[in-house]
Design a protein around this nucleic acid. Structure first.
Length: 699
DNA sequence: GGACGCTGTCATCTT
DNA sequence: ATAAGATGACAGCGT
């Protein structure tokens, strides 16, 4: 958009933004493409060639962007992968130049596939995800798309949520495409949810080791706990974030974006006030009304795995996002029975007047009977369209009550170019689930998913609010009140001349809404923390098992080495027929760990080693019994647990009794005395293998 | 009808 | 000093 800073005596900067410039540019580019003017690339698909401009393609498609950047100037002709068909590519090319995607039931799959391969932006979520199932899964419950089950921790699946999995009779005779689509949609939903949710979002129950981006910095007491864990855990927990969040093992419950880490799974909508900042601060775009900001932001941020109960809402909110980003609306009009034009069009400030007279397509099809699919599609898109709040320009001087009436009447039926055409379907006004609450028909309310557990905004308190709001004649929605930043909120209040009572009421509503959201966050953090701790416990348990088995292995190895060593000494001594004096001399020059010491123990304990008391001597035999007779002790490790005092084992009585059965534990007391007797001779005497003892005894 | 879980709200404390 | 957020406690509601 052209900005035209104009110097003024006071150095003020003005901004002019054309609402038609981008349209014009695109139109010119399309014209050039049609006339093959300034086209710098030929795209070959199957046997067909398409002339185009690289920047246009690159700006719309990741694929082209990558290709062009890698090819440089050389690639004047590029061939697309086999997966891309001409039938699928041509509408995409047209979309790139016109923002309109022409498709039919017959070619939408081709288009979707091509778009997927080419990485065409702004189509998947906004178009295919909703449309394809409508085309190919058009059952009664088609609108009830499955909730992302893996993100529902405990809620039992509801029957209607199984639409995709279940195959109705009407579906039974559908072609393979149907199942393919259903499958793909599941993937899409999942992918979409992942994208829209916090990237960390994942299944709760299957991810003990998955990372999380839960922002524990927002935890208060939990953060302290996490920090304590960090400190206590040492290097193992070094992967924790600064906030004390262990990245190695964390709750896999959803965590939203950095700001709104918290809301994703547990709440239905998350107004992120801060998210509106980019709209409000120094924007060069035409100022949006507070309502627009609120709605946009609320809907933008209102996505979560759990929240996005179906592609419908995802799409709507995605559209809202697009709307908020580009100030565009989404319109859909019918061309003929099976043909639909999905169009993103400029959503000028006067959205209510956006009947797009320049588009003959938008005119009602006289007598044209729409298919159910089409009706649903149109209704869906209309919802997205009207989820955009009324600009403030439409209600400046209108009395609040009149304004509300206006909302209820005008918007829903008359002014919406899509619903107007829908007949009975149109009568099901978006956001008007509760007939008694006319205010809920206000486009300020973004509760899109009618019916089952739509706890987004249709809470008791909100319903109460609407009643009270009507009583107070407040032109606000809860969402708007709660999602606005403080400044915006204050500004909005200033714009409205409210009575004291009204002001109190609005503040109260805002406070409660904020608190409600905070409570959700808080609870979610608790759950995350619990989950995190469970993961930690599991991890430590695994670690312990690993270390235990390693210890056993090493002990076993040590026992074998000792036995082998002892055997060798025994052989040497017996073959050499050494006398005890000779043995002592030999031992004198042997390392202390040498099993030879064991051969000397009786002598040393009685004469040479006065400190080796009877208690130590007795235990020696006791230990040897315990060690080498008590096979009942079971494992080698338990045997060597006894000799902990001789080396690094550090066996404790508790360990002994724990590891040895009662029969062997009768020795434990003395064994322990023996093993703790000393680190030298006593210890080794306690360990001498029976053959050695026997040898010495014999001698 | 009670147990349980979920959610909103309030009061209070912390940031 | 004030607003916003966090959290414990409680109550209402649905299952």
């Amino acid at each position: 958009m052209p900005t035209m800073p104009v110097d003024s005596p006071r150095s003020s900067v003005f901004t002019f933004q054309s609402a038609v410039h981008s349209d014009h540019v695109l139109r010119c580019l399309d014209e050039q493409r049609r006339r093959d003017l300034l086209c710098d690339v030929t795209v070959v698909v199957e046997s067909r060639s398409f002339r185009a401009h690289r920047p246009v393609l690159a700006s719309c498609s990741d694929y082209f962007s990558a290709r062009f950047s890698s090819l440089g100037e050389a690639g004047a002709v590029i061939s697309l992968p086999d997966e891309v068909t001409a039938e699928g590519f041509e509408p995409l090319l047209q979309f790139a130049y016109t923002t309109k995607l022409l498709f039919t039931k017959e070619n939408i799959l081709e288009i979707r596939n091509s778009a997927s391969v080419l990485g065409f932006k702004n189509l998947d979520n906004s178009c295919f995800e909703f449309l394809i199932p409508k085309f190919f899964n058009n059952t009664k419950n088609a609108t009830n798309t499955p909730r992302k089950q893996c993100c529902r921790m405990k809620k039992s699946p509801k029957p209607e949520n199984k639409t995709f999995a279940s195959t109705t009779d009407s579906e039974a005779d559908t072609n393979k495409v149907t199942s393919h689509v259903a499958l793909d949609e599941e993937e899409q939903i999942e992918t979409t949810s992942k994208l829209l949710d916090h990237p960390q979002q994942s299944c709760d129950d299957a991810c003990p080791d998955m990372d999380t981006q839960t922002d524990y910095s927002l935890l208060c007491k939990y953060r302290k706990f996490q920090m304590a864990c960090l400190e206590a855990s040492g290097p193992e927990m070094a992967s924790m974030s600064e906030d004390g969040c262990p990245s190695s093992c964390v709750p896999c419950t959803s965590t939203d974006d950095a700001k709104d880490l918290e809301e994703p799974t547990s709440s239905k909508y998350v107004p992120v006030t801060e998210g509106c900042d980019f709209l409000t601060s120094g924007s060069s775009k035409p100022p949006l009304s507070p309502g627009a900001k609120a709605s946009s932001c609320g809907e933008m941020s209102g996505l979560s795995c759990e929240d996005s109960v179906g592609p419908k809402k995802v799409k709507i909110e995605d559209e809202a996002k697009d709307i908020s980003e580009a100030n565009n609306g989404v319109g859909i009009v019918s061309e003929d029975e099976e043909k639909v034009v999905l169009r993103e069009s400029l959503f000028a400030s006067d959205s209510r007047g956006d009947h797009r007279p320049e588009d003959p397509e938008s005119e009602q099809q006289p007598g044209g009977e729409r298919s159910t699919i089409e009706q649903e599609v149109a209704e869906h898109l209309a919802k997205g369209f009207w989820s955009e709040p009324l600009p403030s320009t439409t209600k400046p001087s209108t009395a609040p009550l009149d304004w509300l009436k206006q909302l209820d009447l005008d918007i829903n039926k008359e002014d919406c170019p899509f619903l107007r055409d829908l007949g009975a379907v149109g009568a099901r006004v978006p956001d008007c689930e509760e007939p008694g609450l006319g205010a809920q028909g206000s486009p300020y309310v973004s509760s899109q998913n009618s019916g089952e557990d739509s706890d987004s905004l249709d809470t008791e308190g909100d319903s109460e609010f609407y009643s009270s709001a009507r009583a107070c004649e407040l032109p606000f929605s809860v969402e708007r009140i709660a999602s606005l930043s403080r400044n915006d909120f204050q500004q909005m209040l200033k714009l409205q001349s409210l009575t004291r009572e009204q002001l109190d009421f609005v503040h109260d509503v805002r406070r409660r809404s904020k608190n409600r959201i905070a409570a959700r966050r808080c609870r979610k953090r608790k759950l995350d923390c619990i989950h995190n701790l469970e993961c930690e416990i599991e991890k430590l348990r695994t670690e312990k098992d690993k270390l235990t088995s390693e210890r056993d292995r090493l002990n076993h190895q040590r026992l074998k080495t000792w036995q082998s060593f002892s055997g060798l000494y025994e052989r040497v001594c017996s073959e050499a027929a050494l006398r005890p004096e000779q043995l002592q001399v030999l031992a004198k020059y042997s390392p202390s760990a040498c099993p030879l010491f064991a051969l000397l123990s009786p002598l040393s304990s009685t004469s040479a080693q006065p400190e080796a008391t009877l208690e130590a001597q007795d235990p020696a035999s006791a230990c040897s019994l315990g060690l080498f007779q008590a096979g009942s002790c079971g494992e080698p490790s338990s045997r060597f647990a006894v000799d902990g005092g001789s080396g690094e084992g550090q066996a404790t009585p508790r360990a002994l009794t724990a590891e040895c059965p009662p029969s062997a534990s009768t020795f434990s007391g003395k064994s322990f005395a023996c093993s703790t007797e000393g680190t030298g001779l006593g210890a080794f005497t306690s360990m001498r293998p029976e053959p050695v003892s026997k040898l010495i005894t014999d001698k």
